[in-house]
Every structure is written in C-alpha cells, then in structure tokens.
C-alpha cells in the first residue's frame, strides 16, 4: 500500500491505496469524481485526460503514487461556479458532444492545447493535436469548430485564458 495525497480541484485527498492504483482510479474511486472516464486500456482514447500541475496527462496511464503531492484539475474543476470555462461553453455552443463520454477528456485536452499554442490554432493543428482523443459520435467536425472558437475567444480575451 502507498500513501497518496493529491490536491484535486482545490480539495485535498489523502488515502492509502494499492501500489498499482492508477491516477484515474484515485480520482474516480477515492475522490469520487466520476466525470473522468475510462474508455480503453491502452492509452489511446483520451477519455481520462486530466491536468496534473496544469499539464494534460492520461490518468489511466499513470499511477496515483506518481502523481503524489500534485495538483489535479478534472472536468469538475474547470468551471467557476455557474461560469463555464470558455472551452466548455464552446463545446455546448457548437454541438461538440453527443453521448458525452469522451467529452471530459476532449475538453481537458483542448484546454491544454490552447495553453500550449498562445499564437492561436488552425484546423490542421487542432486535428493533429487531437490524435490522443477518440470520439465515436461527432466525427470531430464540431469538436474542431468548438476548440477553434474557444481558442479564438481566449486569445482575444487574455484574462479568460488563465
């Protein structure tokens, strides 16, 4: 067993977990935050993407112990109260989701993508950068539009891009 302490969405969680416990299991089972999903066992689908110390990671591909002491942001921690994050709002506005299962990972990846590209994003870059996230419902068309729109909005309003 390993003692793991994580700050998830600003709240501290400590638990003794089996050494093999994955970060996603800690998030879903210990912290009880079920917005982060598991869609595959091979680190392909990206439904489990969260931010660890502000960087996107696949939480199914990391041990909870590796993240010990870190600060995790999940989909539940993105909005400020009723105020949606611009990426969340854009996914809704552009119909960038259908069944919603891949959506948390998509949104977290998009947040990370926009952070890494302060110069702005074009369609080809967005499509290339989404390689690690699989959606079976949308054909990506509206996801790409949503990310493009959010990126444009966040670069126009730097204060919102924090």
């Amino acid at each position: 067993m390993t003692a793991v302490t994580l700050n998830v969405n600003g709240k501290r969680y400590s638990a003794d977990v089996e050494d093999r416990t994955l970060l996603v299991q800690f998030i879903r089972e210990t912290a009880g935050l079920t917005g982060t999903h598991v869609g595959c066992d091979t680190s392909q689908c990206g439904a489990c993407v969260v931010l660890l110390d502000d960087v996107a990671v696949k939480s199914c591909t990391m041990l909870a112990a590796q993240a010990n002491g870190g600060s995790v942001t999940t989909i539940e921690g993105l909005a400020r109260g009723d105020q949606l994050h611009p990426v969340q709002a854009a996914f809704r506005e552009h119909h960038g989701l259908q069944c919603g299962f891949c959506t948390p990972g998509m949104i977290m990846s998009a947040v990370d993508m926009i952070r890494r590209h302060p110069e702005g994003l074009d369609e080809a870059t967005i499509r290339h950068e989404l390689e690690g996230n699989i959606c079976r419902c949308t054909g990506y068309h509206n996801i790409v539009k949503a990310i493009q729109s959010a990126a444009d909005e966040m670069s126009a309003l730097p204060a919102a891009a924090e």
């Binding site: 935050l33 917005g35 598991v38 539940e76 993105l78 809704r92 119909h95 919603g100 299962f101 948390p104």
Partner: peptide
Amino acid sequence: VVRKEDRRFITGKGRYTDD
C-alpha cells in the same frame, strides 16, 4: 436549439452506469 443535456456532460456530472 443548443442541447439541454449538455451542461451535465461538459461539467462532468453525467451519470453513466460505471459511475
């Protein structure tokens, strides 16, 4: 019409069977 169900999905509040 923008979807009514989206809010729970984009905030991680969807309730799937594994949840």
